[in-house]
Structure formats: C-alpha cells, structure tokens
Design a protein around this nucleic acid. Structure first.
Lengths: 203, 203
DNA sequence: CCGCTACTAGATAGATCAATCTAGTAAGTA
DNA sequence: TACTTACTAGATTGATCTATCTAGTAGCGG
C-alpha cells in the first residue's frame, strides 16, 4: 500500500471518529492527509462510499487487535476485561474524549441510509463478537453463554463510549467495567475463576 | 405551540434518527413536515442548532416518559427492566430498525464538534440516569449502586440499539435484556427481589 | 530514448447546504 | 376600517459538497 493511500485511510478514520461520515468532507480529508484530491478517486474509484467501506473494515480490524493485545497481556480473562475498560477510559481522557469506538458514529449514521456501509459495520461488530466469544469459550464458558457475554461486553463498551463522550467524564465506563468484570466472573466455571486463557476448566 | 412548529419538531426528530444531524437538511425537514421554509427561521431564529437543541431535549423527555410508563405498568422493577428491553426490540423490528434511541446518533456526531449540542445530549442522558436511579433506590438499592446500575442499563440499551441496527436483528437486545434483569435481581435486597415499586426493603 | 503505468495536481461542474431576504397573508385589536 | 403581530412563502446568496475531467510528473522496462 502506497504511503499516500495509507495517509488517506488514516486521516479518514480519524476524521470519521470526530465528525462522522456525512460530517467529513473529501476536501477535508485530503487537506488533513496532505494528499492531492485526485488521489482519492485514484485509490478509491467508488468514491466516498468505497473509502468509507475500507476505513470501517480497517478500523475494525485495528481496534480488535488492540483489544486482543490487552487480553493477551492480562493473566486471566477477568483481568483482561477490566484492563480493556480501564484502557478505554484512559485513552478517552487523554484524547479529549475523541478516541472512542472507531466506527460507532458511522454505524448509526449509515444504519438506515446506506445498505453497503451498514453491512460493513455489521461485519466488524460480528468479527468482534466472534473473537471475544472464542476467548470466553477458551476460558471454559459454554458456547451460547460465551456469545451472549461477548455481545453484552461490546454493548457496555459502546454504551460507555456514548455516555462518556457526551458527559466528558469517564464515570460511565468505570461503571461498565465494574459490571463487566462481575458478569464474566459469574459466568466462569467456579473452580477456574481467574483461569489463564487456554487452560479450560475440568477434564 | 403552533401546529407548524410541532410538525417541524416531529419531522426533525424522525429524520435525525434516520440520517443524523449533519445528514438531515433543512429543505428535507420542511418537505417532510409540509411546512414553509421560512417557518424554520421564524420558530427557530438560531437556525439548525437551535432546532437541534429543542429536538434533542424534547425527544429525550418523550423517550423517558415512554420508559417510565413501561416501568409503571410492570409489577416490579425486574419485570420493568425486562419489558423495556423486550419493548425496544419489538419496536425496532416493527420499524425496520429505524426507531431506536432518538438521540444517540446525534450525540456521537456532535460530541466533538458542537459544544452546545453536546451539552444538550449530556443533559438528556443525565436526566435518564437520575430517573432510573430513583426507581432503583425506591426498590431498596443503595444510592451509589443504584446509579451505577442505571448507567449500565442505559449502556446496555444503547449498545443494543447500535448492534441491532447494524445487524438488522434483535439478538443483541435480547442478550442485553437477559443480563440487565439478572444484574437488577442481583442488586436488589435479597428478601425483596421482585418488590413492587415504592415499597422499599426492610424497616 | 520511448512508451507505459501509476500517481499527482487541481480546475470545473452541478447539486445541495444553511442562512438571509423581501413580500405576502391571516387573525386580532383599536 | 386601519393597524399590528404572527406566520407563510419561496427566491436568492455564497459556501461547500461529491464527482469528473484534463493535464502533468515520476519511475521503470525495453
């Protein structure tokens, strides 16, 4: 991937977080990326929609990798969940409440107005759910329960981002983190609460 | 309030849910409201921002009233919480995944770009939190715990709306509702689980 | 050097944006 | 009837939007 294309993608992701999809102009993007206007349509012949699609999927992957890295660095899933929420709150504070979910704003904007991009956001959320579910099944939680738990954690994180950005404080993410860890603890097999990842209960 | 002003407010609220703040044009609003363009600036001299502010606050109040009515109709808070999530999922299905939170899309759009409207959304979320907190303290839960619980319920609802609108199914709201009722049940004083509203535990 | 591809550069088009403006109508009071 | 206020009606303005267009440059294999 050329430098210019990457800069356009990075800038677009950053501007989407701040101003959303309709609120971000192509002129604004090339100005921020210090790229020529023509390059947008060279690299993304489908225009704003194609650029948006790639930004959504790329941002989704990058955010998932960050979350996975936090889980990998934690001694057990409970600590991992706690660290994800604490880290999210910390980043939010440090970035003046800008750097939250990279796709939530766009997801709500396009949900009822752009079927292509709606599907892109749905795919990202589903990939997140699947990866978190896998982490919980590895920790000994049953498949069905693990998926519900994964969904609820994403909901708490997204809801926390929404409330924290509106209020400009981190109270909501702190409450979410406390309840999230409690939920995971309650779902883990009793004798393995705090089990390391990849060391399933029993047998 | 004149008929025309009310029609403009109603139409704007509906269009904001679908297309967001930046995605909704004033021309589009008057066309949907069947109102003359000049009326917008007659009733809302501050332009789009003043209209947005009133729509956010009005929608926030109306949604709170709906939720409160559901709680009032339920025999206890646990049933109330369950009904709120089940009702949200049902409405979402019936409206082709359009009618979710009336202000979430706008809240994310303006959080980092319009301080006036960010404050409007923050006020709405705080009013919701306060009212739900009161309901839980009335059911015998301590003030601090009740507030955290209220925040978490809103997060689950908002996160559920986000995931359901993206996926175009109600799985996420169902998972949220199940965990939400479980959380409330766990927080209620043991001997009053299922207590009617206004009948606090003990003494 | 030639010719090809990839990319840069930005002017331009045509639509749409929020906002302002003038002019007109309707209803109520003197 | 005359006057006032509230509201309707939509043309207009200037900015900005996405998208297209032509033209120029850089690097590379022959």
């Amino acid at each position: 991937m050329t430098n210019t294309k990457a800069r356009i993608l990075d800038s677009t992701a950053e501007l989407f977080r701040r101003y959303g999809f309709t609120g971000t102009g192509l002129k604004q993007i090339v100005a921020h990326a210090n790229a020529p206007f023509g390059s947008i349509y060279h690299f993304f012949p489908g225009g704003k929609q194609e650029l948006g699609d790639q930004v959504i999927r790329r941002s989704g992957e990058m955010y998932l990798e960050i979350v996975e890295a936090v889980f990998d660095a934690a001694p057990d899933v409970i600590t991992g969940v706690n660290d994800v929420f604490a880290g999210a709150a910390e980043v939010l504070r440090q970035t003046d409440y800008v750097d939250a979910c990279p796709i939530a704003t766009v997801a709500l904007e396009v949900a009822s107005s752009n079927e292509t991009l709606r599907q892109s956001t749905a795919d990202v959320f589903e990939s997140w759910t699947a990866r978190i579910t896998a982490r919980f099944t590895n920790a000994g939680i049953g498949e069905s329960e693990a998926r519900k738990l994964g969904i609820v954690l994403i909901e708490l994180l997204e809801g926390g981002f929404l409330l924290c950005r509106a209020a400009r404080n981190t109270e909501a993410l702190e409450a979410a983190g406390a309840f999230a860890t409690a939920l995971v603890r309650a779902s883990l097999p009793v004798d393995t609460a705090g089990a390391r990842d990849g060391e399933p209960a029993h047998r």
